[in-house]
């Protein structure tokens, strides 16, 4: 048992008669033990002084009337506070959903690009290809994500609109006709001949 434990047990009357006698005998022989005991006695003295603290009588007499008033008045529900809680919960719910959605359905840039190109109509795709014509890197990225067939259709459509575009794109005739039916190829070829000669 440590010295502090002995002191507290002594003050709490928890020492056996033998332990108590030995403790009191040690107290007579040890200045340190007496000093330590005095520190604990000081705590007891301080708490005892405040133990029988009395409340101001005016305040004390107001407690029961207030309780009776609370008892009689109907329970009021704090609408404002409940709305606050509801709003807070809603914000947390929305944030959680968006975080979880991003976590589980995070899409790569390629997937996003594919979705974007699929959302374009034919004319928008042609415009896009014209815009990015000078940028080989972006062109490759776009063309990688569009099927060959779709790309051919795009170029064919563009060729039908403007037969000089093939020259502008610097694309060979063979590349343009991949995927086209023979009938379509003949038709386009005849058109080009008619226009140029």
């Amino acid at each position: 048992m440590t010295t502090e434990e002995r002191i507290i047990k002594y003050l709490e009357n928890e020492l056996s008669p033998e332990e108590r006698n030995r403790f009191e005998s040690d107290l007579n022989n040890s200045v340190e033990l007496r000093e330590e005991l005095n520190k604990y006695l000081n705590v007891k003295t301080e708490t005892d002084k405040l133990k029988k603290l009395k409340l101001n009588s005016l305040y004390l007499n107001s407690l029961i009337p207030e309780f009776r008033h609370n008892l009689d008045s109907p329970k009021s529900v704090s609408v404002k506070r409940n709305l606050g809680y509801a709003f807070g919960l809603m914000v947390i719910f929305i944030l959680s959903i968006s975080i979880l959605k991003n976590f589980f359905y995070s899409e790569s840039p390629t997937v996003v690009l594919q979705e974007f190109t699929q959302s374009l109509n034919e004319n928008q795709k042609i415009e896009l290809l014209e815009d990015i014509n000078g940028d080989a890197e972006v062109y490759n990225l776009i063309s990688e994500n569009i099927s060959d067939n779709e790309l051919s259709n795009l170029l064919t459509a563009e060729l039908e609109l403007n037969n000089e575009v093939a020259e502008a794109y610097d694309i060979s005739f063979n590349e343009l006709i991949v995927g086209l039916s023979q009938e379509k190829i003949d038709e386009i070829y005849a058109e080009i001949l008619n226009r140029n000669f």
Partner: peptide
Amino acid sequence: GYENIIDDIETKERFLRM
């Protein structure tokens, strides 16, 4: 809060310290 619940100043100070 409401310091006047304890009338005596010295006791009040001791109480607040504890």
